[in-house]
């Protein structure tokens, strides 16, 4: 995607507005620290921990999430999932395992489904992320959301955002031509309530309805 995104004000309440230059400056500080004699480091340990951490822990990141542009600075170890949930407060994307085993955290990155718990936020610089909150067209639900309602494709609702994001991608990928194919390509999304047959029915209806997903 476009790395030359025009400068934008940071989205409201979305962290610091740090630049790459700033980061480099801090990196130099770290280099200097690394070369400093041991005792100096030790003496200043308590304060330095925070300084060093602050330098290490913030990397600038531009993201488009559900059409909204964010300029953020995040720790490199922050997953896309935790960024969405804990910092952007987009809690529709769910955490079910943190290992890419359950699919509850499925989002679209540049149109492709991704387990957001398995991808670091900083790897998505300049990319376009769509979460369940961005699927509907304003008040008008996406056909897949409508189909899930109609076919009762959920019970507790926790895996549902991931199932729906995966289901949309499943059709877009051309992997929804038969019940068997849908089941295979949806098997990365676990539903412990066991709504599977209803989910498959919902996907089949959307697929056969021919609406654009």
């Amino acid at each position: 995607m476009d790395n030359e995104m025009p400068p934008q004000p940071a989205a409201e309440g979305c962290g610091h507005n740090e630049t790459r230059r700033n980061f480099l400056k801090q990196s130099s500080l770290l280099t200097a620290l690394a070369l400093a004699p041991g005792p100096i480091l030790k003496a200043a340990e308590a304060e330095l921990d925070e300084t060093v951490a602050a330098a290490f822990e913030k990397v600038p990141l531009k993201l488009d999430v559900n059409g909204k542009k964010y300029k953020l600075s995040v720790e490199p170890r922050t997953t896309l999932l935790d960024l969405l949930r804990e910092q952007l407060h987009l809690t529709g994307t769910k955490k079910g395992c943190d290992y890419g085993q359950c699919g509850a955290c499925t989002v679209h990155v540049d149109g492709k489904r991704v387990n957001s718990c398995l991808t670091l936020a900083v790897m998505q610089d300049g990319k376009k992320v769509t979460t369940i909150e961005g699927l509907a067209d304003g008040d008008k639900l996406h056909p897949m959301q409508e189909a899930f309602l109609k076919h009762d494709g959920f019970q507790c609702g926790y895996c549902t955002p991931g199932q729906i994001m995966s289901a949309v991608a499943c059709i877009r990928e051309g992997h929804a031509d038969s019940e068997g194919e849908i089941k295979e390509y949806m098997s990365g999304n676990i539903c412990r309530c066991g709504a599977y047959p209803n989910i498959v029915a919902a996907i089949q209806e959307v697929k056969s309805g021919g609406q654009k997903v």
């Binding site: 529709g92 369940i132 639900l141 959301q145 959920f154």
Partner: peptide
């Protein structure tokens, strides 16, 4: 259809870890 279904399919339903 579930009365809380819309909240669940749009990601608006808040589970226990999701309160700000």
């Amino acid at each position: 259809s579930r009365v809380d279904g819309r909240l669940k399919v749009t990601g608006a339903a808040k589970y226990s870890a999701e309160y700000e």
